[in-house]
Design a protein around this nucleic acid. Structure first.
Length: 261
DNA sequence: ATGGCGTACACCGTACGA
């Protein structure tokens, strides 16, 4: 079972690219982030034509996440469902959960935080804490669970190009890394790092300054899996080709292949 | 050798991203 994740930075702009990648890579599941549009503008038909159904959680202008899958998506849940719908952490559409082929899939777009001194920073840390609470209350490390998405944290110094310059800053500060660690301590493994140990492997590159062509980016997009799934992960990689296409997203696709028993 | 930010929404700029 092949599962992938892609922050598309506007589904309206990137719809044809998503279709192209689906036809090329033939994943069973593709999680999307940053749809940046409402449900009525989402191109369901484009994906249905090629055999993918979609579940989405979307809002105007910002955020928005989706799960595309071959076949049915069951038991769909939106947001931090252990908190009230009106809770400030549920105002931004950042989480979608669904079951595909017996695997519980979460598409996640974690907050950016802007800067460590910003009021968005504590919001980010709180979102991470409540995501762990959601897992504790609603999920089990013994089930087949995969959390795919843009975590907006560079896990270690090898996951960004300029760690000494950016030490302690947004995306790599100690509290953000601890918050990500806390989520992983639920019982989630970083599938990419099972198969790739080297530094300099990224999933996001700034549009400015030709950073992609210079090989200067960050690894912010992760596929985290519980043990029953992670032990069946036979491959995981970032596909850099969509980042080379005309008018690309600033993120590229990460995929993982699981040999389910 | 070069050079390079994009998207949404409304306004002709601003918010936001990472």
């Amino acid at each position: 079972m092949k599962i992938a994740t892609w922050n598309v930075n506007s589904i309206k702009v990137r719809a044809e690219q998503v279709k192209k990648w689906l036809l090329r890579a033939e994943p069973d599941v593709l999680c999307l982030q940053e749809l940046k549009t409402t449900a009525d503008q989402f191109p369901f038909g484009l994906f249905e034509e090629i055999g993918y159904t979609a579940a989405i959680s979307a809002q105007k202008t910002y955020n928005g996440v989706a799960i595309l899958a071959r076949g049915q998506i069951g038991d769909v849940e939106e947001g931090l469902s252990h908190l009230p719908e009106k809770h400030p952490l549920n105002e931004q559409k950042r989480l979608l959960c669904g079951t595909v082929n017996g695997v519980r899939v979460i598409s996640a777009y974690m907050p950016n935080g802007e800067a460590t001194g910003s009021e968005k920073y504590p919001y980010k840390l709180e979102f991470f804490r409540e995501f762990r609470n959601l897992l504790d209350r609603r999920r089990s490390p013994a089930e087949k669970l995969v959390v795919c998405g843009d975590f907006n944290v560079a896990t270690e110094d090898i996951d960004l190009y300029n760690p000494s310059e950016r030490a302690g800053e947004i995306l790599c500060s100690g509290p953000e890394r601890a918050a990500l660690e806390n989520i992983k301590n639920f019982g989630l493994a970083d599938c990419f790092r099972i198969h790739n140990k080297e530094a300099g492997r990224y999933t996001w590159w700034d549009y400015q300054g030709g950073m992609f062509w210079k090989g200067l980016g960050m690894r912010l997009d992760l596929i985290l899996a519980t043990k029953p799934l992670a032990e069946s992960c036979v491959a995981c990689d970032a596909d850099l080709s969509p980042r080379k296409w005309p008018r690309p997203s600033d993120h590229t696709v990460v995929w993982a292949d699981f040999k389910l028993s």
